[in-house]
Nucleic acid binder design. Structure first.
Length: 432
RNA sequence: UCCGGGUUGGGGUAGUGGUUAUCCUUCAGCCUUGUGGAGGCUGAGACGCGGGUUCGAUUCUCGCACCCGGACCCA
């Protein structure tokens, strides 16, 4: 026996069916919005990450030198790849560019609940619109996708913020405040005591009074108060933009899932405007389910024309945790339309029936294991066959086959030449 | 990298310093090549690895590996 590599997963049929069902909803919803599917390489140049994040990032990459000496890596995220793709065809792609893709990514990380080394994400991105409607469309897609999976507003919420609000408020203090340290403190505020939180803020350069005041302001999430408190262009613009996005989300049907949460500070460095994270409302999944937001500087950073961008990338692992805890994880039930049972040497006739039924698009199985009558029925039962077609020597001697309804156990004889005949999906009820 | 918990047939478990390691389930076959869901019978299948203590270790002990949580991290 060989071990499975840590952090990688096998999907047995039942699990694969659930994964497939999840992907179908996410992508099907994206298709309704006009997002077009793209395909991307599993391997990219490692420089796409080391240039931006430094060489330490290599520790978290599945990177290696290929046979021609290129330093490459299994891709840990999609964003640099789409950025590269947008830059490469910037002139010929009509805007807004709306792309979707579901695929695995790889990161060499510590494995934990909801986090693997090979993980699947559905990335949904819009390039070329800085309008609030673009941000709102991302929120709306996410909301539609989650409700399409069977979740409701009881199960999830989007905590929405704006990158410039926290920074802008901190900037407005006269004192010399270490903005980054303060934002890190906000990020941790959930996990530490109030006193510790305030201490961290004070270390970042706020006075004790300011720390308390800042805490209240941010915790309340009241945009009017924020605006009144920090009357700077940056904060005013951020607040207005956030309001516009929420107003559009209202019309798009996603507002009810959104909560203004100015503490939502964490996330990728490249976010520039509205940011949001999806959380389990019940708090059972403590980690954020996924995050998204606006990253207007990224394309330019990859050598393209300045191009606004906004996107979201739900990871399927945390999503499945949420779906399971909400009790809406798609459970596969094997469904088989027909089992064609053979007794004696009836293969030619049985095979003809099987092929005709399959041609009509039905799911059809027959004996390929040389089993006895009882064992075949047993098997037909185990695969939830709706109808069993018994092709036995005795039946054929009368030019008949037996049609058995597995749920009721009722059965009837029909002329073998009339089966399946012209009926699209002949069952016991049609033939009795 | 760190912290906590764990490891007995495919899955779930009981148990023990000493004879053939318990039970449930699963799987295969049979009872029953012409009637499944119930039942019965038969069979397959396990003490993570290595060292130590011991006459003897699956059991005690140490180390390691692996698994599950969590911290850090999360581009």
């Amino acid at each position: 026996m060989y071990d499975r590599i840590k952090g990688f997963r096998d999907f047995y049929p039942g699990e694969m069916a659930a994964r497939r069902a999840t992907i179908d909803v996410l992508e099907g919803t994206a298709r309704e919005y006009g997002f077009r599917e793209i395909g991307t390489p599993a391997v990219e140049r490692a420089e796409m990450w080391t240039d931006k994040s430094g060489d330490e990032i290599v520790d978290e990459l599945y990177s290696f030198e290929d046979k021609s000496g290129r330093h490459v890596t299994l891709t840990p995220e999609l964003t640099p790849t789409v950025a590269r793709m947008v830059v490469a065809k910037q002139q010929e792609l009509s805007k807004p560019i709306k792309w979707v893709s579901t695929r695995p990514f790889w990161r060499y990380e510590q494995v934990q609940q909801g986090r693997y080394r090979e993980f699947y994400q559905t990335n949904v991105d819009i390039f070329g619109s800085s309008e609030p409607e673009a941000d709102a469309e991302i929120l709306a897609w996410a909301a539609d996708a989650l409700t399409g999976l069977g979740l409701t507003g009881e199960h999830f919420e989007f905590r929405v913020s704006h990158r410039d609000i926290l920074g802008g408020v901190l900037e407005s203090y006269d004192t010399d405040v270490d903005t980054e340290a303060a934002i890190r403190a906000v990020d941790k505020s959930d996990k530490i005591s109030r006193a510790e939180y305030h201490d961290l803020l004070i270390e970042a350069g706020l006075t004790a009074d300011q720390a308390a005041e800042f805490d209240d302001l941010i915790a309340d999430g009241d945009l009017d108060e924020v605006e009144a408190f920090a009357d700077t262009d940056r904060v005013t613009a951020a607040v207005e933009n956030l309001r516009n996005v929420l107003a559009a989300a209202e019309d798009f049907g996603a507002r009810e899932y959104c909560t203004v949460s100015l503490e939502t500070a964490r996330g990728l460095d490249y976010y520039t405007g509205v940011v949001f994270e999806c959380f389990d409302s019940a708090g059972e999944v403590s980690r954020s389910i996924f995050g998204g937001g606006r990253y207007d500087d990224l394309i330019e950073g990859f050598g393209g024309q300045p191009t606004p961008a906004v996107g979201v990338a739900p990871g399927h692992a945390t999503l499945s945790l949420l779906l399971q805890r909400a009790g809406v994880w798609p459970d596969e039930e094997v469904q088989t339309d027909y089992y064609v049972l053979q007794i004696g040497d009836t293969r030619p006739e049985a095979a003809r029936i099987v092929r005709e039924l399959r041609e009509q698009g039905h799911v059809v199985e027959t004996d390929i294991a040389g089993r006895s009558f009882g064992a075949q029925l047993d098997y037909a039962d185990s695969i939830n066959a709706e109808t069993v077609v018994i092709v036995g020597e005795q039946d054929l001697a009368n030019d008949e086959v037996t049609i058995k309804d597995m749920e009721s156990g009722d059965q009837t004889q029909v002329p073998v030449d009339d089966f399946p005949g012209d009926l699209e999906r002949p069952t016991f009820d049609d033939l009795a």
